[in-house]
Amino acid sequence: MRLSFVLAEMVQGLRRNLAMTVSVVLVTFVSLTFVGASILLQTQIDKLKDDWYDRVEVTAYLCPQDSPQPACAAGEATDEQVAALQAVVDDQLAGDVETVYLETKADAYEAFAERYPDGYQGVPLTEDDMQASLRLKLVDPEQDYAVVNDVLTGRPGVESVEDERAVFEPLFHALNRASILAAGLAGVMLLAAVLLITTTIRLSAHSRRRETRIMRLVGASTWFIQMPFLLEGAIAAVLGAGLAVGGLLLGVKYLVVDWLEQSVDWVAYVDAGDVLQIAPVLVGIAFLLAIVSSFLTLRRFTRV
């Protein structure tokens, strides 16, 4: 009896304020889409880091012939110098470097020829134009680069030490900013959602003030009076969250799976699984939003 009555009241309330209900659904939909997009961008950044930091290494370029760098005034790095450098890496940098290997001029030329079979911009290059280097894979790329750089730079035979990750930093910055922007918009939209839910409940309470007055008069309990309003807000908000999850799934499918993955296939992307993972978070936020705003409103409007 109780439950069916509360549900009937709630459905009636939703119908009576249909336009407001729809707007609550839409605003929560948009705001939670931004929340979701922000979280997905962060997930994407993490995936890229995991993926790329695995492949990208620190390179210590060894002195080539006729280098203009003062560090290489002695000429091309000798085999002894290379061996000494490898010993330093094994010894002093044992805790920072996971693997190290020597890329000889021949290796470099092979990689070059594979990528540019017709020569670089039409100029054919020979093995002697290549530069030998030590490729280092770090244990913790975020932390260890400074140490490696410090130890290797200036040693005989080393022309320069470069962190290849630096190439990707601008991309991560861009993604990070996009994520922060999405989070900021999400914040504004969430505020709008709270205000809208509050207004909707206020209207709903106003249109049912006669009923509410009678309910108080005959001794209906507070939760019984407030429950239909609470459920109204919660259901509208959760519907909005459902739409947001649907929207994000579609967005990931069309933007990432059908487009990005087809054109740039060598990086890891977010997928439907990631969206489903954040779905409960979004629904939770919607529910909380509705409950908090209802509670604030109802305390004033249906007080015993």
Binding site: M1, F5, R210, E211, I214, G219, A220, I225
Partner: peptide, 20 residues
């Protein structure tokens, strides 16, 4: 203080419904 949308029966029943 009757509810105008409800019938006589519903008005009286309402008082019992809302106290469960």
């Amino acid at each position: 203080r009757l509810l105008p949308d409800k019938t006589v029966y519903e008005n009286v029943a309402f008082a019992l419904q809302v106290i469960g």
